[in-house]
C-alpha cells in the first residue's frame, strides 16, 4: 500500500465525509438545489414547459397588490393563533394529568397519541363526517342543548374554526408526549422540599413545574408555530381552501399557483414570504428565550 493511500484511509475526516455523503447528497439534491432554484424562479415567468423569462421583481410586486395573497396571509396567521396557544395549553394539561399514577394510564397515553400516527387524510375524512350539518355528530350533540349548529365546513365564518379544532385534536398527542418526557425529567425532590416549605399545588406548578419545563415548552412552541405556518393537508382535504377562500392558507395558495395555474414564478415568492415569516418569528423567540427559558 502506498503511503498516500494509507494517509487517506487513516484520515478521520475522510470517513466522516464518506458516512455523511448519502445524507448530504439527499439534502443537496432534494432540498438545497430546489430552494436555490425557486429563489431564481421567483424573478421569472415560467409555466414548467415554455421558456423561462426574466421579469425582475414583477412577481413580488404582483403579490403585494394581490388581495388574495393578503387574505391568505391573514388566514395563515388566524390559523396559527387558533391552533398554537390552545393546542399547547390543552396538551400540557393532559400531560400533567397523565403523569399521575392513575390506573390504565398507559392506555390513555396511547389513546391520546393515536391521532398523531393516524393518516391526516383519514382524520380529515372522519372530521368531515363529524362536522356534517345534517347528520354530523357535533351538531347532534349541540342539538341536545337546543343549539342549532352551523354548517361548519361550508360557512365562511365557521370553516376555519372547524379546521383549527381538527388540527388541535390531531397534534395534541405529540406535544403531550414531549411534555410528559419533560415532566418526568423533573426530580421529585424539588416537590418534596416545596411541600415541607408549605407550598400549595399552584405554587408548585408555577414555581417548579413551569420553569423546569421551559426548555420543552420552548421547543414545543417553536415547532408548533412552524408547523402551523406550513399547514396544508388537512385544509386541502377538508375544505380545499373554501368556501370563498375562507380557509386558504399560504401553502395552499402556493400549491394552487404552481400546480393548478402552472405559474412557477408567481408561486416561488410565496415560498420566500413563508420562509422569512418563519425565520423572523423563530429569531424573535430565540432572542426572547433568554428571558424565560431555564437550562
Amino acid at each position: 500500500m502506498t503511503k498516500k493511500l494509507e494517509k487517506i484511509i487513516y484520515n478521520n475526516y475522510f470517513w466522516v465525509a464518506i458516512f455523511l455523503l448519502p445524507n448530504f447528497l439527499g439534502f443537496l439534491i432534494f432540498i438545497l438545489l430546489p430552494v436555490l432554484a425557486s429563489f431564481g424562479l421567483s424573478f421569472t415567468k415560467w409555466d414548467l414547459l415554455g421558456e423561462i423569462n426574466f421579469v425582475g421583481l414583477a412577481n413580488y410586486q404582483n403579490l403585494i397588490s394581490d388581495s388574495t395573497f393578503w387574505k391568505v396571509l391573514w388566514n395563515t396567521i388566524y390559523y396559527t393563533l387558533g391552533t398554537v396557544p390552545l393546542g399547547i395549553i390543552i396538551s400540557l394539561m393532559l400531560a400533567i394529568i397523565l403523569n399521575k399514577k392513575i390506573k390504565g394510564v398507559k392506555i390513555f397515553r396511547a389513546v391520546y397519541f393515536l391521532p398523531v400516527i393516524s393518516s391526516t387524510v383519514a382524520v380529515a375524512m372522519v372530521w368531515q363526517w363529524i362536522y356534517n350539518p345534517q347528520f354530523g355528530l357535533l351538531n347532534y350533540i349541540l342539538s341536545l342543548f337546543n343549539i342549532t349548529g352551523p354548517s361548519w365546513l361550508t360557512s365562511t365564518t365557521w370553516a376555519m374554526p372547524a379546521v383549527i379544532i381538527t388540527s388541535i385534536w390531531k397534534g395534541l398527542g405529540f406535544n403531550m408526549l414531549l411534555f410528559l418526557a419533560g415532566l418526568q425529567g423533573i426530580p421529585n425532590t424539588y416537590y418534596e422540599a416545596a411541600e415541607i416549605d408549605g407550598a400549595g399545588s399552584w405554587a408548585k406548578f408555577s414555581k417548579i413545574t413551569l420553569p423546569l419545563l421551559s426548555p420543552t415548552m420552548f421547543f414545543v412552541i417553536i415547532m408548533s408555530i412552524i408547523n402551523s405556518f406550513q399547514v396544508f393537508d388537512q385544509i386541502y382535504i377538508m375544505t380545499g381552501g373554501g368556501p370563498a377562500r375562507s380557509t386558504s392558507v399560504l401553502v395552499h395558495y402556493l400549491y394552487q399557483n404552481a400546480f393548478e395555474y402552472f405559474r412557477m414564478g408567481q408561486a416561488s415568492p410565496i415560498a420566500y414570504v413563508l420562509f422569512f415569516l418563519v425565520f423572523i418569528v423563530t429569531l424573535v423567540q430565540l432572542r426572547n428565550s433568554k428571558k424565560w427559558v431555564v437550562y
Binding site: S155, G240, G241, G242, P243, R245
Partner: peptide
C-alpha cells in the same frame, strides 16, 4: 381559461352560495 373558471366558481360564486 382554467384559472378564470376556478376563481369564478370557487371564490366568487361561493360568496353567493355560502356567505
Amino acid at each position: 381559461p382554467q384559472e378564470a373558471w376556478d376563481v369564478l366558481t370557487t371564490e366568487e360564486l361561493e360568496k353567493i352560495w355560502y356567505a
